[in-house]
Design a protein around this nucleic acid. Structure first.
Lengths: 132, 132
DNA sequence: ATTAAATACGACTTTATTAGTCGTATTTAA
DNA sequence: TTAAATACGACTAATAAAGTCGTATTTAAT
């Protein structure tokens, strides 16, 4: 329970790897996959997603790969996780209030508060904090 | 991602329900299941688990049910979740360091820190806070 | 004693989510 | 023209969560 998905893990590993090499350097998927023993295809999809989201910049063709473009100081953990995995909430009703039990639910408010606390915590953390 | 399991939800709903009735009153599974539209059998198993853990006290036979015994002030959210669902960590290596990738992993420490923060947050919250 | 209403609990099935793979297309440097 | 890279949808496999079933036990009420 409460685990990060591999997608998020792999994305963080890759970003940290790229960051340590500097933002001009182009790094390819295979290099990262081998260095950290991650399935290439899966990492590939993850990096493609990061590219679509504008966090890294793709360079196609031979000697291609990705270049880190986003300023990791400006990206917080909540946004990062939601960008990869969609809405992050302890219960669905945090985002979608079509739960049948809502009218009788006696724990919604406290859970919403906890959720806010977690989001707040994650908002305080930039990816730069996590990858340096 | 990051959702509480139903087991935890149902347990919290039940505890809150029982608490609102006072700690001498015996409440049975069916009553709670019907009030909140929860599958009886599943709630039954959950309450049995709470009983095994000493949080509620079973009363067998007709007019039986459960009575709230634990002092909810003394039980924090980390302990409660782990008691129902086992170890709570963003990555398995928080508890079990047999991960093959550990020697190359570049994100372990930051993740451990985040995990500590979440645990810390959850440690501050007693079940009494959540159910009153 | 018998009955019925409750808990106890392991085994099983179903469903949802996550993880990973495959095939094929596109881009581009050499 | 080739080969090394990204792009991406469709598929499959593995894992975890949710829910069901059957059967046993306890005990108050009759």
């Amino acid at each position: 329970m409460f685990k990060l998905t591999r997608k998020v893990e792999y994305a963080l590993i890759a970003l940290r790897h790229m960051q340590s090499k500097g933002s001009e350097v182009v790094t390819n998927t295979k290099e990262i996959a081998e260095a950290y023993d991650i399935p290439v295809q899966l990492l590939a999809k993850t990096l493609q997603q990061l590219a679509r989201e504008g966090i890294i910049d793709p360079v196609q063709g031979p000697h291609g790969g990705y270049r880190l473009t986003a300023n990791l100081e400006d990206l917080n953990l909540t946004d990062f996780i939601e960008l990869l995995e969609g809405p992050m909430g302890l219960m669905d009703c945090y985002f979608d209030s079509r739960c049948e039990q809502l009218r009788v639910c006696n724990i919604r408010l406290p859970i919403v508060k906890i959720n806010d606390s977690i989001r707040n915590l994650f908002n305080q953390m930039s990816l730069a904090d996590l990858t340096k």
